[in-house]
């Protein structure tokens, strides 16, 4: 099972303490939860909207709750999880900002991954006057589920504005590697961004979240 886990999910696993209680939003077939339960004794639930994925997660023996993340996490109490995880779903939500706020209400920390719309391929396509169709974003504009795409810089600006501290960050290419180009120009070469956020600090606004500011400066 370990070998089959997507590299971005493997990286997320490193960010999760053993024995933690987690909520995985858009858990798909439950691969991450099953892996975490197996390797780290993590307990938790997955939320998934798609019936086939729900059945697949049930078949794996993962706790899965069929739900629409856009309807919120009202069924979950404040700080009832150590981590709330959402991989590659943020950009498909009606209100990503509200979803993130909900994640940080329900969890002590939030782990989120999304495709970076600031990747050079996307910028190049836009410079030519067309919406990008790239290996990381293969669907055309009229049929894509990704209705709220953002760049790494946009995401960090939102975190700064809401006072969400960036506790960890990993910017990867399509093969989920951290190449030298990403280290030099992360905003241009990152295709998949992974963030671990903390609960909001007292004073939002004004860029006081030092780690986020640092990371932006290198873009």
């Amino acid at each position: 099972m370990n070998a089959a886990l997507r590299p971005d999910l493997a990286l997320i696993c490193d960010w999760i303490a053993p024995g933690a209680r987690i909520l995985d939003l858009g858990c798909g077939d439950g691969a991450l939860l099953a892996h975490l339960a197996h390797t780290r004794g993590v307990r938790g639930y997955g939320l998934e909207i798609d019936a086939e994925e729900v059945a697949a997660a049930v078949a794996r023996g993962v706790n899965v709750i069929q739900a629409d993340i856009d309807e919120g996490l009202a069924d979950f109490a404040d700080a009832s999880f150590d981590y709330v995880v959402m991989t590659q779903a943020l950009q498909a939500l009606a209100r990503p900002d509200r979803a993130l706020a909900e994640m940080l209400r329900v969890g002590r920390e939030a782990i989120v991954t999304f495709p970076n719309f600031g990747h050079w391929r996307a910028r190049l396509a836009l410079a030519r006057g067309r919406m990008p169709v790239t290996p990381a974003l293969p669907a055309a504009w009229y049929e894509t589920r990704n209705i709220h795409l953002c760049t790494v810089a946009d995401f960090e600006a939102l975190c700064r504005e809401r006072g969400w501290p960036v506790l960890e960050r990993a910017l990867l290419d399509r093969a989920h590697r951290r190449g030298p180009a990403i280290a030099l120009f992360p905003g241009l070469f990152c295709e998949i961004a992974l963030y671990k956020l903390g609960r909001p600090r007292a004073a939002p606004q004004g860029g006081s979240a030092a780690s986020a500011t640092d990371s932006l400066a290198r873009t």
Binding site: R43, V54, N63, A67, D75, S80
Partner: peptide
Amino acid sequence: VAAEREVSYAC
């Protein structure tokens, strides 16, 4: 969930 029991749900 609040009781931390194992549960799956489908509609």
